[in-house]
């Protein structure tokens, strides 16, 4: 038995009404837990690509892949390897900012190559892209200033060498 870890799974699916429902219904029924989900159009017409991050050991991930593949509207599924992949997520973070702290927050954003995309008298909106670890460490640093709102898109991945 392998240990539980985050695994990223991608699925090429029909772009039809109800497909997301079929997939999440299967996850719910079989007790799989999704920690993030990203959906968008793929390079192929009428097909979408979904990216899930799930927690589980190898046996759980194998069952999840097989059960996804069993759905008629799912065309192809694969588990992303742990190495040699580009993994990205986009977050919008609203953080409390006073005239005293605004400069420090901008500096932190700079370190993470994040952008300030909104300013109000008492807060800033920061846009940041990166892998999940970067999101977490940036959030940790900003906590001290007062995190007001966090929106994350969920992870998407792409293999460096070949197309999935």
């Amino acid at each position: 038995m392998t240990t539980n870890m985050d695994r990223t799974i991608t699925a090429l699916v029909q772009d039809k009404p109800g497909v997301l429902n079929r997939i999440t219904s299967m996850f719910r029924r079989r007790g799989f837990n999704i920690s993030s989900l990203a959906v968008g159009q793929s390079e192929k017409p009428n097909l979408s690509r979904m990216t899930f991050v799930v927690q589980g050991n190898n046996a759980v991930v194998e069952q999840l892949l097989k059960n996804l593949d069993k759905l008629i509207d799912v065309i192809k599924v694969s588990a992303a390897p742990n190495e040699d992949v580009v993994s990205r997520e986009l977050a919008l973070i609203r953080v409390s900012a006073t005239p005293d702290t605004r400069k420090e927050i901008v500096q932190i954003a700079d370190i993470f190559r994040a952008h300030i995309v909104g300013v109000s008298p008492d807060s800033l909106i920061i846009e940041v892209a990166g892998d999940a670890d970067k999101m977490t460490s940036m959030q940790d640093l900003l906590k001290g200033y007062g995190l007001l709102e966090v929106m994350r898109t969920g992870t998407i991945v792409m293999h460096r060498g070949k197309s999935s």
Partner: peptide, 8 residues
Amino acid sequence: IDPSEIGK
């Protein structure tokens, strides 16, 4: 015939 039954 159903791969998801194997190892379930």
